[in-house]
Simulated scan of single mutants.
Amino acid sequence: MSEQSEEESQELQQKEEKQQQSEILQQEHKSEEQLQQIPYVHMLNNKYNVREAVHAGSWYSSKSNELKIQINCWLEQAKAEVTTVAQLKALVVPHAGYAYSGPTAAFSYKYLKKYPPSEKLKVFILGPCHYVYITQCCLTRQEIYETPLGNIKVDLETVKQLHEQGLFEQSDKDAEEEEHSIEMQLPFLAHILGTDNFTIIPIMVGSIDAKSEEYYGRLLSEYFDMDDTLFIISTDFCHWGTKFAYTYYNSADGEIFESIEKLDQKAMEHIELHDLDKFNDYLREYENNVCGKHCIAILLHCIAMSQNTHMMETKFIRYAQSCLVRDKKDSSVSYAAAITFLED
């Protein structure tokens, strides 16, 4: 009797599972029909001119409400202790997954929230290429960058002006979507500014030489001095561990993670002093694999060539590591937040 009841129970369970699967299929079919009825203007992500938010749902939340709560929480926890800011000109921001670098990134973006622009901003976002090898800087061909918090318009006029200079490549959609360094800045910008209050000029920075760094710095310095621009320098600092092929360790500095911090601190000191020569000397000596080193160099050229260079200051305001490495088998990535500003 008990065996028969068990068989009947299994049959009932199978029927219920089939019914659930049938309902799911019907719902998916219904959703597809509803999607087909949506006007074309609302289906921008199917157009070739949209750079989709492909890292949403993995590197950061794809749910707008959840993402807003997370960003708000990090901004509330961040401190803005520099009180001499007259105008923000640049932010140095990490670009790892938000679970790792979000709290650090919030320290830079806290200043954008505290010192909001008085007019619509043109935001230049310089990010390194992690997956595609290029020897120039790349401009986008897209018109829209998608985020869970709304779509952001590309400043097509400025992109055209830069492209006409002749030393910019144009990236393809696949390459742009594979790269995360620019995308990771967009939710913070969209949340703080609102997508209608700024446009972006995304620039993928390749493995460029010193001459090219100076060229791009000189070219962009004209825009850097404008009142309606902000530069975002997307970079992480030391990538430590055998998987990154970098294991510099000075035991005199203490534990491995303490040695890493002192190593990064040397780089940050040169950047704060706007000393590009010493920053380059440091990179040659320690070979620290700062992924956005060329982006930083372009920023330092912009500062040096700025009409307001004597009034400009850069301060690092937060530093963190993904893991406090004590064992050579471990690995970590360093995150730093900085602001460049005109002094009050």
Rank of each mutant, 00 (worst) to 15 (best):
K18Y: 08
C238E: 07
D172E: 13
T199C: 10
L342K: 04
A99F: 15
Y48I: 06
Y248T: 02
A175H: 09
D172F: 10
F279G: 03
Q265L: 11
K113L: 15
T242E: 13
M305E: 15
F224P: 01
K153G: 01
G241V: 04
Y246L: 09
D155C: 12
G150N: 01
D225V: 05
L12Q: 13
Y133P: 03
A337C: 02
A320L: 04
N197T: 03
M268E: 02
E8W: 12
T199D: 10
N197I: 05
M204L: 15
R284I: 03
L273V: 00
R141H: 09
Y335C: 07
I134S: 12
L300Q: 03
G254S: 09
H191L: 13
I182P: 02
M312S: 04
I317M: 02
V159T: 06
E157M: 08
V333W: 07
D172S: 10
S334W: 08
D253C: 10
I233V: 11
V50P: 02
Y319C: 07
G102N: 12
F237T: 09
E272V: 03
C238K: 06
L75D: 03
N45E: 09
F107W: 15
V123I: 08
A175L: 04
P39T: 04
G97P: 08
L342A: 01
S9A: 14
E258R: 12
Y246S: 06
Q34K: 11
N45M: 11
W59G: 15
M305A: 10
V41E: 12
I144L: 06
L193H: 01
D275G: 04
V50Q: 09
A99Q: 14
E17M: 11
L273E: 13
Q307W: 02
D344F: 01
L67T: 01
N72M: 10
C238L: 12
S181Q: 07
E261F: 14
K89F: 13
Q165C: 11
S9K: 14
A78F: 04
L299V: 03
K266G: 06
Y109W: 07
Q265S: 15
T104N: 12
Q185W: 07
L219D: 02
